[in-house]
Simulated assay, not measured.
Amino acid sequence: MSLLDIVKPNVDTTIASLVDTEFRPDPIAGTLFSRVVSVLSSAYKRHGSIIEQAIVECLKANPRYTVWRVDLFGIHDQAAITVAAAQNNPSSLDSTHLPYIGDAAGSNRIQLDAVVFDNDTGVVSSYEIKRGNGHFDAGKQRSMKREALLSKILLRDHCRQRGFPATDSRAHIVFYYGIRSIPAPLGLIGAELDDHFGMPILSEVETVNAYFRSRLFEIISQ
């Protein structure tokens, strides 16, 4: 089954929801252009989840990688203190690994869009996947950076608890369309994904994007 076959139901569901988008006609734009703007605005917001699924499913098809998502990744106080002390020097955490205690961590949780264990190297990495076609404000940048570093220092033990022999951990934020709000090495852009994973990613995701674009244009032209 191709990547498009896997992601197509998500695209079709998204398009169906866009058809039913409610909008308020603008006095200047009129009904037609108000509808187009409303549909496109909603499409941009939903497109990020399609890119995320496409990247994740592409990686899952490669036996080199084991991939999963974590909706509630527990953060304990020691991890928060450690990251706060290193915010201005993230590289100081390169060799830092703390125990992952999951639900025992309390109420502080973050979401990991993808956790990828490399069966060849033993490295486990977390990824937050963004559309990346616009800049994030300073507060959001700090939040993304903090969450990436929190996942990095807890990820090795989290992975080991799942039964995978992780030897090291990393964290990245993907800005797919190239506006890198967080510098490398934390920040990645879509054009770097093929080299980063050692496999074709960009062309596969763009096949999905082309289908989403064609379906989107269909409903806009109605």
Rank of each mutant, 00 (worst) to 15 (best):
M1C: 07
S2P: 14
S2L: 06
L3R: 04
L4P: 08
D5R: 05
I6A: 14
I6Y: 06
V7T: 03
V11H: 02
T13N: 11
T14I: 06
T14S: 08
I15E: 01
A16I: 00
A16T: 00
A16S: 01
S17V: 00
S17Y: 00
D20R: 09
D20Y: 01
T21Y: 06
E22M: 11
E22Q: 12
E22L: 10
F23W: 12
F23D: 09
F23Q: 09
R24P: 08
P25H: 10
P27R: 05
I28N: 03
A29L: 15
A29R: 13
G30L: 11
T31P: 10
L32H: 03
R35H: 08
V36R: 07
V36D: 11
V37W: 08
V37A: 12
S38N: 04
S38Y: 03
V39R: 14
S41A: 12
S41C: 07
S41H: 08
A43I: 04
Y44I: 10
Y44A: 14
K45S: 13
K45C: 04
R46M: 09
H47L: 06
G48L: 10
S49Q: 07
S49C: 03
S49K: 05
S49V: 01
I50S: 02
I50C: 03
I51T: 05
I51K: 04
Q53N: 05
I55H: 04
V56M: 14
V56G: 07
V56N: 06
E57G: 09
C58F: 07
L59C: 12
K60G: 04
K60D: 13
K60W: 04
A61R: 12
A61M: 15
P63F: 09
P63A: 10
R64Y: 09
R64A: 11
T66N: 07
T66V: 04
V67T: 11
W68S: 08
R69L: 12
R69E: 11
R69N: 12
V70R: 15
V70Q: 15
D71R: 14
D71C: 08
D71I: 13
L72D: 06
L72K: 12
G74K: 06
G74C: 04
I75E: 13
I75G: 14
H76G: 08
H76C: 13
D77Y: 11
D77S: 14
Q78C: 03
A79P: 04
A79V: 05
A80Q: 06
A80C: 05
I81A: 03
I81F: 02
T82A: 02
T82Q: 00
T82H: 01
T82V: 02
V83M: 11
A84C: 06
A85Q: 01
A85K: 02
A86E: 00
N88R: 02
S91F: 10
